[in-house]
Design a protein around this nucleic acid. Structure first.
Lengths: 234, 234
DNA sequence: GACAAACGCGAGTGGTCGCTCGCATTCTGG
DNA sequence: CCAGAATGCGAGCGACCACTCGCGTTTGTC
């Protein structure tokens, strides 16, 4: 509920001019400007969270940040760019913090442990940054962000697929594996929505329920492997 | 205006319940008007499906229906009313067609059969009426429709809960049961999204995958009961 | 056929929103 | 210290949208 996401300005003291793909010059920023940008992004996160992307007005974001509309457009070319930048920073933060959450593919890890760790990490991230969920689930979001969403989805899908193929190395059909990965992601999404919709002990219970669902779904697929006899109760 | 006179135009082929729920006078409609309403709702369904509710403009709906904006407002007081009426008709249709999909609670039914039947029926409905999904999942939808969404969700939740409690009659905690029902609905929603996103054989495969996930999730909970040994392969 | 009401139209209205522009203020390099 | 850039402001512009209004057309009823 509390969006306590302070967004660090990326690597202060280093300017990047190698953006040759954009014909725009890398606009010199003062420390004040970087602060304003962070302030605006925080405000945008709050507004996006409460009203969604399309319903959020740039004036509202500026008001929330305590600046004028003109100031907002000093730092962002348009409304979409705000969401893009916000999404980029969140993605970057996620990668650097929980990037390897899905990576460990030690085949000796019991299923419950692997699933539990991955779920815990991602749930934690989404609880800390509720905007992420809002940005990635809005069906009203225009082109560019949608691309990012697709990219993220593809990335996660690949990770899950890798993790799954390491857990069940002798699976027959890669198409089946792809569907299983899709289903896992979908189940995670559904569970995340339930988790975010509750708090305290109830939230914990839903986290456990999500883990149960995933483990039970995957359990029969790892039947070839030995071990993993435990079954978590609620 | 004069008070309501005899309000029984023939209205061929359809009952009228709208005069009872509207406290306003029930605007006498001609057959032409009813046709226009159906036409407009069909157009609205198409536009809502492709662009979402908020992004859909009433002018676009009118254009899609081949009428003028003024004509649209001859039959609907505002944009929201269009979605409301559309939602009402869909809900009514769903109830009368698949209302008992979740109802049968014969404890002798094997789990796979119960889950499979329920999933098949609801998947079929959602495939026939994609607007339903669009209307019920838009986070951008204003108050009234959101209430309907909540009502539907609560109804489905109650049905699922009933069905579950009939399948596992000796479950300990009703809170656990509620969470399980929520999780089932969430899994169904996630699976539905995957199903709608594919076609042909791939769609069928996802339907099967959804059934597998639900069955495996619920299987350990019905362990007290005997039978249900089969396991469907993909 | 006459009358009223339902239907149909499409330019127009008020309001919101994304975004701009001119100008004032603060910072920074030389 | 001073030119020039970065920052900051907020009224306002154009576009779009939900919705209206006046008027002409069709339909049901007597």
């Amino acid at each position: 509920m509390p969006d306590n996401q302070e967004l660090a300005p990326d690597t202060p003291g280093s300017d990047r001019q190698e953006q040759a793909q954009e014909k725009e010059q890398p606009r010199r920023r003062q420390a004040r400007g970087e602060r304003r940008i962070a302030q605006l992004l925080e405000a945008a996160a709050h507004v996006f969270c409460t009203t969604g992307y399309t319903a959020a007005s740039t004036n509202a974001i500026a008001r929330e940040a305590g600046v004028s509309p003109g100031t907002l457009y000093q730092f962002f070319p348009n409304k979409e760019a705000i969401a893009i930048e916000l999404g980029d920073r969140l993605m970057h933060r996620m990668r650097e913090t929980y990037g390897e959450a899905l990576a460990p593919v030690d085949p000796a890890t019991p299923l419950e442990e692997a699933v539990g760790a991955a779920v815990d990490r991602f749930i934690a991230f989404n609880c800390d940054h509720p905007v992420f969920f809002a940005l990635m689930h809005g069906p009203d979001i225009p082109g560019r962000i949608s691309e990012e969403h697709d990219a993220l989805h593809a990335t996660l899908l690949a990770r899950v697929t890798d993790l799954l193929s390491s857990l069940l190395p002798d699976t027959a059909d890669p198409a089946d594996l792809a569907r299983t990965a899709q289903m896992c992601l979908g189940m995670y999404k559904a569970g995340l929505e339930l988790v975010l919709g509750h708090a305290g002990a109830e939230r914990e219970a839903y986290v456990q329920e999500l883990k149960n669902a995933l483990v039970r779904y995957l359990e029969p697929l790892v039947g070839a492997r030995l071990g993993t006899p435990a079954r978590a109760g609620a």
